[in-house]
Design a protein around this nucleic acid. Structure first.
Lengths: 199, 199
DNA sequence: CTATTATGTTACGCGCCAGTTTCGTTTCGT
DNA sequence: ACGAAACGAAACTGGCGCGTAACATAATAG
């Protein structure tokens, strides 16, 4: 094939990379603030300090823009956990996870909820990203625990990734309550530790 | 006070009660099909076989209509569970719960997700209804279990209501996978039974 | 310098939906 | 019979967001 299309002669004024990231970050902001349906291109452009055609020059429409923004978003890294103490590691990780979900993920979940009907491709993309993030979020505590001789059930990491985010999201959205310290203690002591420790 | 306002002289043609329920059920249908944001009064009226002013004569707008529809909705009753066998009761109840959520609740959760931003009152109403439904859904298995000598941890019913719907919703929405038989077995055997049985 | 492209501003046409109004008809209470 | 109110159909106004186009200007490659 020998490169069917040249990668654009690039003659003329080049695109501003700073505006690229400004658009993506503004999209994430608006998305978490008002949700997917209420997100308008005008609002994103205004928030990014950019003209509307500048957005449309990069993305054909809302689904592609949101997908690119979610892709661009860097997931937070979980805090380092003290080795040798599974309970302490779980407490720290769960609290951090709850904060992350309450601050950012809720808006993305809303986008997933509503966008999945209109655009299955976007839904698949969102699920891919979320799996990547959850994997990164739940890997920390178990590496330490395993190396320090804790006796865990097989598949403990998968079980944690399956239960902890689910219960946290359920409490935030359905119950409408915040994930305070008492809730984190409850989740760790009454649910996670009894399940994950080898019985 | 002695009745400040008379309850409407009711002179003229009375409202048709059949149209009342037609409107509410059409609202639930459209809501689960297209979600809260995409729901239009015209679509509801058309689905109900009713003129648009007939809807506006009863409700001032979309939030009130949706709230009334969710209030009107009767939650399904969980199937009777075999007494004396906690595992069998959990399997039946969890499978039924998963089907219920997959068929109906997902749409209502989407409405909760998106409507909660625009109308906090609607969100509170939805949460109240959902608590009522979840309580009705999770009461069955434990009454039988307790009467038949199963040794359960204290607060087992609350724990079940906290975990089972959360994991089911998480799988349906985030993972995008159906709750088949294997998943129900996994949820019961690997998560619920180890947690609920007195250790 | 010149051609070429990006950018901002502004404006436009289009479609969709909200909420209201009008009108002719129907159904009730009195 | 008579008046009042609900009903369906249709039309209507208004707002809003989409996606595009028209300009003038800025930045860059050659």
């Amino acid at each position: 094939m020998s490169d069917g299309r040249r990668p654009a002669p690039a003659r003329g004024r080049p695109r501003d990379a700073a505006r690229d990231v400004a658009i993506l970050e503004a999209t994430l902001l608006v998305l978490t603030e008002v949700g997917y349906d209420q997100l308008t291109i005008d609002a994103v452009a205004a928030r990014a300090g950019v003209g509307k055609p500048t957005v449309y020059r990069r993305y054909p429409g809302k689904p592609a823009l949101v997908a690119a923004a979610v892709e661009h978003r860097a997931p937070g890294t979980p805090p380092a956990t003290p080795p040798g103490d599974l309970r302490a590691a779980l407490l720290v990780t769960v609290q951090w996870l709850a904060d992350q979900i309450a601050e950012q993920e809720i808006g993305l979940l809303g986008a997933l909820f509503t966008g999945m009907r209109s655009d299955p491709g976007l839904a698949a993309e969102m699920r891919r990203i979320r799996r990547r993030d959850e994997a990164a979020m739940t890997e920390g505590p178990f590496r330490n625990a395993l190396e320090s001789g804790e006796r865990l059930v097989p598949g403990a990491a998968e079980l944690f990734a399956e239960i902890a985010p689910a219960v946290i999201v359920h409490r935030l959205v359905v119950a409408g309550q915040s994930c305070d310290h008492a809730f984190v203690d409850h989740l760790v002591d009454d649910i996670l530790l009894p399940l994950l420790r080898r019985r």
